[in-house]
Structure formats: structure tokens, C-alpha cells
Simulated assay, not measured.
Amino acid sequence: MRIEIRNLRKKDYKKAIQFAITGMHFDWYLNNKFLLNAYGRYFWYLELNRATQIFAAYVNGKFAGVLLAEIKGEKRKQQSVPGKIYVGLVGMIQRKLFKGGAGLYEKTTKEQLAHYLKSYTPDGEILFLVADPDCKIKGIGTALLHALEAKEKGKTFYLYTDDVCTYQFYEHRGFERAEEKKIVLEMPKGKVPLRCFLYSKKL
């Protein structure tokens, strides 16, 4: 079986959302299925609407992963008006109801980026990278990163992640930890201690 990188099919959006919910362990924060799906959908459309590069991985025609990236000076690939409206509404609700959760996380990433930009001049950001957690084929994430590198070679990218996700994946592929901060999120499931990271690499 071979990993094939090609254009993302719209019918695979739902799978991408489910991969994110599972791979990024959103269930560590939320215990309600409706809220989990709502946040997964919010996160997906938030990043999809920003993306200037979209790479999808398929194994035997089956969707297996996706990478979204935003590069300065490039045109955005997808602009979903319903998606923008949804992101705006859910984002407003999150900031009001979960100031110690999503609001704190967002504030932390902004602070990290501001500090990072004092020393670096990145060309873009890796917004979203997920793979099917049930796929038996290894190397999907690596194949997606290689596709981005082939398209944007020589450019510097940064990304956000945390210790709930598999941040070691990026370290093993040459990304350097540029920023780190410990926070405690106040979520519906209780307090969640978290280490937030910003990684950087010249492709």
C-alpha cells in the first residue's frame, strides 16, 4: 500500500474533524459528544478558511490525513461563508463561557508568537496536521510534511502544539522548540495542566 498526496475531497471534511477530535485528544477537555463535535468543526473551519496550501493523504483511495498551511503572499484555497459564520459564533461563545479555557489558550499562543517574532521572520504557519489514528500505514504525517517541503522549500514555518498532542513528532523531524509555557485550563471536565509549545523550522 502506498501513500498518495492529492487534493482534499470535500466529502472528507467530516473525517478530518473526527481525526482531530481523536488525535488532539479534545475529549480530555470536553465530556459531551455534541460539544466535542461542535469544537472539532469550529477548529477545522477556523484553519481551513486561513489555509493557502492544502495537502491530503490517501491510502488505496481512502482518506488518511491532511495538512493545512498558511503562507505569506499566497491566496487562500477555501473560503466557506457558512464556515466563517460558524467560527465567529462558536468563537464568541467560547470566549464568554470558557475564558479560563479556550480564551487562556488563545492568549498564550498570541504571547508566544509575539516573543517568537522578535527573533524570527517566518514565511508561514502549519495550521493543522492530522492523520487517521486507525490507519495501519505509518508515515502519513511525514509524507504530508514532505509535500509541504517540496512546495515551499527554503521557507521557515512555525506551529503551535502542546503536550496533549504528539509534539515529539515534530522534534523527530527537525523542528526546534522556540517557545514553551505552562498553563492550567479551566474546562468542563475540570482543571487541565498543559504545556504549550511553539515550534519552528526552515524547510
Rank of each mutant, 00 (worst) to 15 (best):
I3N: 03
E4P: 13
N7L: 06
L8G: 10
K10Q: 04
K10E: 09
K10R: 09
K10M: 11
D12L: 15
Y13H: 13
Y13K: 00
K15A: 14
A16Y: 09
H25T: 12
H25L: 11
H25Y: 12
D27L: 00
L30C: 03
N31S: 08
K33W: 06
F34M: 01
N37S: 11
A38V: 15
Y39N: 04
Y42N: 06
F43D: 11
E47W: 13
L48K: 09
L48R: 09
L48W: 11
Q53M: 05
I54E: 04
F55K: 00
A57S: 01
A57N: 03
A57V: 05
Y58R: 04
V59D: 00
V59L: 00
G61C: 07
G65A: 08
G65M: 10
V66E: 00
L68R: 05
L68W: 12
E70A: 14
I71P: 01
K72C: 08
E74A: 06
K75N: 11
K75H: 09
K77A: 15
K77G: 04
Q78K: 15
Q78C: 12
Q78S: 11
Q79P: 10
P82R: 06
P82V: 08
K84C: 05
K84R: 12
I85H: 11
Y86S: 02
V87W: 10
G88W: 15
L89E: 06
L89P: 01
M92W: 07
I93M: 15
L97F: 13
L97A: 15
F98N: 05
A102S: 12
G103I: 03
G103T: 02
Y105S: 09
E106K: 14
E106L: 15
K107L: 11
Q112W: 13
A114C: 00
H115C: 14
H115F: 07
Y116T: 02
Y116G: 06
S119H: 14
Y120G: 01
P122T: 04
D123H: 14
D123L: 05
D123W: 07
V130S: 03
V130H: 03
P133I: 00
K138S: 12
G141M: 07
L144W: 12
L145S: 08
L145A: 07
H146E: 09
L148I: 05
K153G: 14
G154R: 06
G154A: 08
Y158G: 02
Y160A: 09
D162P: 01
C165S: 10
C165P: 05
Q168T: 15
Y170F: 14
E171D: 06
E171F: 13
H172A: 06
G174R: 12
G174Y: 10
F175W: 13
R177W: 01
E180S: 07
K182E: 10
V184Q: 04
E186R: 09
E186P: 07
R195D: 11
L198I: 07
Y199R: 05
K201E: 10
K201L: 07
K202L: 04
K202R: 14
